[in-house]
Every structure is written in structure tokens, then in C-alpha cells.
Design a protein around this nucleic acid. Sequence first.
DNA 1: AACACAATGATATATTATTGCATTTTTGTC
DNA 2: GACAAAAATGCAATAATATATCATTGTGTT
Lengths: 151, 151
Amino acid sequence: MSAKTPAKAIAQGMIAAECLCARHGVRLTNLRRAILEILLAAGAPVKAYDILEMMRDRGQRITPATVYRTLEFLLQNGLIHRVNALNAYISCTCRHDDNTLLMFICSECQAIKEIDDHDLYDYMQKRLEKSGLSLRDGCIEMQGTCRECMR
Amino acid sequence: MSAKTPAKAIAQGMIAAECLCARHGVRLTNLRRAILEILLAAGAPVKAYDILEMMRDRGQRITPATVYRTLEFLLQNGLIHRVNALNAYISCTCRHDDNTLLMFICSECQAIKEIDDHDLYDYMQKRLEKSGLSLRDGCIEMQGTCRECMR
DNA sequence: AACACAATGATATATTATTGCATTTTTGTC
DNA sequence: GACAAAAATGCAATAATATATCATTGTGTT
């Protein structure tokens, strides 16, 4: 419905997810597939209860607990990210096999951009280590303004 | 009670807050003072409903709405920060007069460290501008592991 | 005192998330 | 295939976090 993402990209995302789950030795069930697909299609942060509604609209009988459990699974396996600033979830667009993540959130339009800048990440890592802090496997969430909202 | 922070530091924080409010032309009321003091004393992230309880323990009749309104005021005036990763609030320890903020959260022990590293901030800013993103007035929340929890 | 405005009180409700236990589905073993 | 064990899901209740709305109180100005 609100498919902001081209069908092709969604399909690719699903295939990538299948591969990843196979490698991890975990099961990508229909429920998990369905919720991941919603997130892939949205291409934007989606709230847990919105996912719940979308699933119900599709005729699924489902409760919050199930949604959150499924999100937890997808998070664990690096297929999606949680956007703390928005209490929302977004499908992962980077191909980081590690858990490292640089995420930029536009405070104006809520758009999310994953930053695939390993140099920057490494620099931050190095810089923080001077204060005895390790970014290893860490998430970084930055808020600012995107180009469109800047003008 | 749970005063992790020396009384002297709390007092200093309060004075700084008074000054700042005076400069901003806003009122640091008793309620606001009380809640700021709780946060200063804690020296760690505190949840809204914990603040509510502490206030009630002190004999104040107070509701969630009031707590959130007060937190909002303190946030607006840069006296505290919201820790999105924890749904919690912490008194500001840096003296940034701007809204820029680099915050590090230990995923193990939940300790928060404000990073006062303008070089790092500027570097990130510059780096992000290449992607059309502006960190101006933005918050950065990083999760990782602190020295103590590393071993 | 009268007024305007900011702050707080009070009630209700919305939003986000988890717990615990029952049931179903899948997997591995015989 | 039959079975037991484990994983996934269903279901109900409830916890935790946050906001909206309207009434009341306090503060500063004239």
C-alpha cells in the first residue's frame, strides 16, 4: 500500500534476508517475512502499533506481543534497526555484517539515512578510545537536518 | 538520598541554572528547581516516573503531566538532556551554550558520558555535509562500552 | 484592584512495551 | 510415520511512558 520502495528492491531485501538467516542458522518464518516486508516496503521508520494495524488490515490476527517479539528477532539478526529517537523501526539498508551503525535522523521530516562511512566510524572509535570508551558494535544516532529541509 | 553527586557540585549546578534562566529571561520556579536538583543529585539518567515518585516521597502532590512539563522546560533551556536509548533524563554536565551534544551510553552499565570534544563534533559535521546532512544543533547518541565494563 | 499571562493541578487517556502461560508448528530422533 | 523436545506463535492481562484538555493558582504590570 504505502510502498515507497520499488517492488524489486523489496524482493532483493527479502532474498538478502533469507541468505542471512540461512547463514545464521535461524528461521525466517512467514510472520517474520511479513513484518520485514512491511518495513522494507515503507522504506521509512514505522511504529510497532502501525505494523500491528497493517498486519490486521491484511487479515492477520496478531497482538502487540507478537509484533514486538518479531521485531526483536529482526533486530537481533541485523535485518532492521530501532530508531530510539522515534520509537520506531526501520529496515536496514547498509550491508554491515557487524553491528556497527551510523544513523542520521532529520528532526524536521523524520527521514532516516544510514551512513555507510567507515572512515568516520573509525575516526570516532579512535577518538573515543582516548576517553576509555569503545564503540565496538555500537549504534550511533544523530539528529540534525537533511538537505531538503535545510533550504 | 541517592545523591551520587557531592553537595557542592549540586549547589554549583543550581547556581549555573539560575544564571542561565536569568539570561534566558525564564523562571526557575520551585518545582523546576526541585526536579533539576533531583537530576543533578543523581548524576545519572533518571526516568520520569522515578522523578514522580521521588517528588511524592518528598511530600509533593504531583502528576505525570507536571513532571513531563517540567522536564520539557529543562530540556528547552539546555539544563538537562533526554537519553533516547533509555527513556530517561540526565542533567547536563557540559557547558555548551549551543545545543550541540555528543553523548555516550554504556550498554552494560547505562553510564552516560557527555563528550566535550568539539574537534570530533566538527569533523562529523564536515563529513556529514558531504551527504547533505547538517548536524547543526543536533544531538548525537552513541552506544558502546565504557572502560570499566570492558576489562 | 484588575488584568494578562505563565505555571501548576487534576483527570483522563493515548502510546509504547512486556510478562506469563497456553497452544501450535517445526525439527530431530528413533 | 510416531514421538518428544524445542521453537514459534496466540492470547490475555498489565506495565511503563507520555500527552491532551480544561480548571485553578500564582506573578508581574498597570
